[in-house]
């Protein structure tokens, strides 16, 4: 460092610190967004998955049956499309006073099996949608369309043949 505080007479130590900070930020962003799931991506695929939406009221059923495009939580990215909605009575397990286990219908509540087809990527570790939502049986996911926002559990996932 010379008498003016510059290394090799060209760049000051403060300037060097700024450059190192910016490089560190860029590297950090790359590590953050280039996760092991995406770096191990093997192929683009179309998936069909079924989400069980439990114990919802009729207005949610009606909104789901309108179908349409499913999106991310900000309603900006198109993820897939609802292709089918099967509706049944909602049931809940309970124990009676004399110790019996009963499966009882919940009045005015319904369970919907919502089938969604969506594009995503298959990796060594599993399946993910374009917004990095992991498609795994047992995982709780949001279903967001133009008309409805609800939550359910994935009960099946399959890769569609081209």
């Amino acid at each position: 460092m010379d008498k003016n505080g510059k290394i090799a007479g060209k760049i000051s130590i403060i300037d060097l610190g700024v450059i190192i900070l910016i490089i560190a930020a860029v590297v950090g962003l790359c590590i953050r967004f280039m996760s092991s799931t995406t770096t191990a991506v093997t192929s683009d695929e179309t998936f069909r998955y079924v989400v069980k939406v439990n114990s919802v009221r009729e207005f949610t059923v009606n909104a789901l049956q309108k179908g349409g495009i499913t999106t991310d939580k900000n309603s900006e990215m198109t993820l897939g499309e609802i292709t089918d909605v099967q509706v049944g009575d909602a049931k809940m397990q309970s124990t009676t006073a004399d110790g019996r286990i009963e499966w009882s219908n919940l009045p005015d509540r319904y369970t919907c099996m919502v089938t969604i087809e969506a594009d995503g990527r298959e990796s060594e570790d599993g399946y993910i949608l374009d917004d990095t939502t992991e498609l795994s049986v047992g995982r709780t996911v949001d279903i967001i369309t133009k008309y409805v926002k609800t939550t359910g559990e994935i009960i099946s996932v399959e890769v569609l043949e081209d």
Binding site: V56, F59, T60, N62, A63, G68, I69, T71, S75, E76, T78, I144, T145, K146, Y147, V148, K149, T150
Partner: peptide, 17 residues
């Protein structure tokens, strides 16, 4: 109103919201 959402300002209008 778009194909993906109905919003008033920044507020999403969706059943269940």
């Amino acid at each position: 109103v778009t194909d993906k959402s109905i919003t008033t300002g920044d507020t999403d209008i969706k059943v269940g919201a």
